[in-house]
Design a protein around this nucleic acid. Structure first.
Lengths: 413, 413
DNA sequence: GAATAAATAAATAAATGAGATTTATATATT
DNA sequence: AATATATAAATCTCATTTATTTATTTATTC
């Protein structure tokens, strides 16, 4: 956890944050305690915004002295910034501390079916730089060339100090990308190249940054969790309606990527067609359905994606699509709540905000008509991060690896 | 964690085991470290059986010295028993330590739709005493009278030392019991009494034991997790096919009861009938379906439940029931795996072992014909604890509260 | 084949060290 | 004067490190 001079650590014991997780695994010693408490304070600052030491002590259930020591240490490392003393209350004014925006930087990348994004984010989640390419379908060579060049460009724009503060690169990729050839219209054989790609070693060719690999929709969930409305709920399921729908889940205030990195594969939820035939949510609640409909009617599907988005030109297609999607989301929400008693369902997607709100509203209406025996009705809410969620969330992944509390394991890169 | 003389603890800090959990919550101090490490060693002993200190040190990633100190302390408290030294290897013989069976005792209770069970289990999970009542449907007065008398009887049979070693009472109850009146055939009004029942305060009338409340199927899952095949898997979903089907889930080697205690409400999973109408799993994969069929054909349904169970007299009804149930379980398994990428699906129920194995086998066969795009196929396995799982698991709940590692929160009683 | 030394592993005592808490004090405000 | 924040110094807990003891197997010697 120490920034430049690495904390002297023994062979025994471990950071507490990850201890629960690797099953029944690791014992803990004092440096594990410090690591845990540092992450805890950083996480509280991340979630609540600026807080005085005394507040942190109360929230963390630690003695003020302990908090003071840890804060001064992290301040000296440049991780924390000191705010203006707050007067107006009896007693010595408190000094609110907050995450120093330039204290840690992180790189995120999202590999989508139509485009890839590479960005640099700071400790507070603000995007500092963003690069993008589009393609008919992604292939490894093209993607890694983009990453190599993009990373060079990003690093070139950073000061030497900033470069040392970049803590890693997170990559959001769809699960088993090589099987998506049909959906994206790529030749199966060529697309199979993805199967043997090892992201960590490919990236090691041109960077020493630690790499974390995340499911793309899970990354979107991560972004919503820290920069959006995620903090409001302890347990929730997150739907991201993109060209193909995907999802992520949050348990105990932590994104849960799953043992094999495939938790929240909500696109694979079972649905059924009018004749009772089995389908998957991805077949009935994705934007590509709308795209197909537009093409069939002689419109250019690219209009759906160009920014700033405006879908109001196609009400004849958009409206029924929203209805169908809402119905499917309502059913899917309950299926999901039978597995985990989620407090809420958050819905986001690559669509205009007005569409999102309409979709949420209609999903709520469908929900009350469902059979809810034995279930606790979840709240259905609109997520706020939107379009870029997956790349931003990917960038958050290395931050969590080193600085924040995370109940959960992630895919080894 | 200290047994009789409670560990002196400060107002600050907390046990680490629960720290991750209560969200971003508690900081940790030295006594939290000790608590964590003690629980870790006990959990390792619970899962692996007897282990020498040197092995524990390696598994827990703690120094041998630390393990030695903790083991001697827990041995002095009577929690651990010393095994015969193991010779035959180079070096000083190792002394395997194991959970002392009488070291901790625990009471468990399961309230079912047809019967209630109260039992006393030891630290190793062995049932020492078991009491049972049956009824047409459960009502609070009757149940609490049973608990009061049963507990008195159990305590009377214990030595004074044993009484002090009982660490709590766990109660497994169906979620929102007061809504089950239709299914069990009880008058709605009378059954509604359950709604305002506060188990903790009712039990406080006649016992000082700490009370933990758990969902009944989750309790079954807990039992399988520690005494059955659960240790083999890190993440799995557990189906218990009783009069009504229910379930539980395990994440990161810990039973996850859910924020509101209703995770693994697998009976509420959506299914669909021949006309595409929406149903719940509980309507299509429960033993009560078979019961109804037997009644329709003039058989006595009690024959299904009398021990030792023998269902071979009704092949004409049992066989199609297994087929239908297997088909539903196969579908449900995939729905569940879209939410969490479970390694395995464990199936148990209140049926003879032969029926269980047939059901598992057929579920596997149906599974391979399902649409598995985007999913990782889970293993389907037969659970082993069986009939009594829910009461045994309920008894395990207080043990986990105090002695074992548990990544997860439980319902506050 | 018996005696003996060397090697190895387990277990633990004593010293050390990390890090949290407790107690006490300075400081800035109402 | 009262109160709350912040921190210095002393204390305490608990894990690690280092060193020692003990019990065993294995190799060597007589």
């Amino acid at each position: 956890m120490r920034y430049l001079p690495l904390r002297k650590s023994s062979n025994y014991g471990a950071a507490m944050t990850t201890a629960n997780i690797r099953s029944v695994s690791s014992g803990v010693n004092q440096s594990g305690v410090r690591d845990h408490n540092e992450r805890l304070l950083l996480t509280l600052l991340q979630r609540h915004g600026a807080l005085a030491g005394s507040d942190l002590a109360r929230l963390a259930n630690l003695s003020p002295q302990t908090v003071s020591i840890i804060l001064r240490e992290m301040e000296a490392e440049g991780l924390l910034a000191r705010g203006a003393p707050v007067k107006g209350k009896v007693g010595k004014p408190s000094v609110p501390m907050s995450l120093a925006e330039g204290g840690v930087l992180s790189v995120g990348c999202k590999i989508g079916r139509r485009s890839a994004v590479l960005l640099l984010a700071d400790f507070r989640g603000t995007v500092r730089q963003q690069l993008q390419i589009t393609y008919a379908y992604p292939l490894p060579e093209r993607i890694f060339a983009f990453l190599r060049e993009g990373l060079t460009q990003i690093l070139a724009s950073c000061s030497p100090d900033e470069r040392t503060r970049i803590c890693g690169i997170g990559i959001g990729v769809p699960f088993e990308l090589w099987k998506w050839n049909e959906l994206v219209g790529a030749p199966a054989e060529e697309f199979l190249l993805w199967k043997d790609v090892d992201f960590a070693s490919e990236l090691a060719e041109f960077t020493d940054l630690p790499v974390s690999l995340v499911n793309d929709a899970t990354a979107g969930c991560q972004a919503e969790h820290i920069y959006g409305r995620g903090k409001e709920f302890r347990d929730y399921a997150y739907f991201f309606v993109g060209a193909f729908i995907g999802g992520g889940i949050v348990l105990n205030n932590s994104v849960y990527p799953g043992h094999r990195g495939n938790a929240g594969a909500l696109g694979s939820l079972r649905s059924f067609g009018p004749q009772g035939e089995s389908q998957q949510l991805i077949d009935v609640a994705s934007i590509h359905l709308l795209e197909t409909r537009l093409i069939e009617n002689g419109h250019d599907p690219a209009d759906l994606w160009t920014l700033p988005q405006d879908w109001s030109r196609f009400p004849r297609f958009v409206d029924p699509w929203i209805g169908r999607t809402a119905q499917e989301l309502a059913r899917a929400s309950l299926s999901v709540c039978a597995v985990i008693d989620f407090e809420a369902i958050l819905i986001d997607g690559a669509f205009p905000t007005s569409v999102k709100h309409e979709l949420v509203e209609r999903t709520r209406r469908y929900l009350v008509n469902q059979d809810m025996r034995g279930l606790i009705a979840p709240r259905v809410e609109a997520a706020t991060v939107g379009f870029n969620a997956r790349a931003i969330g990917a960038a958050a992944s290395p931050l969590f690896d080193r600085y924040f509390m995370n109940g959960n394991v992630r895919l080894s890169a």
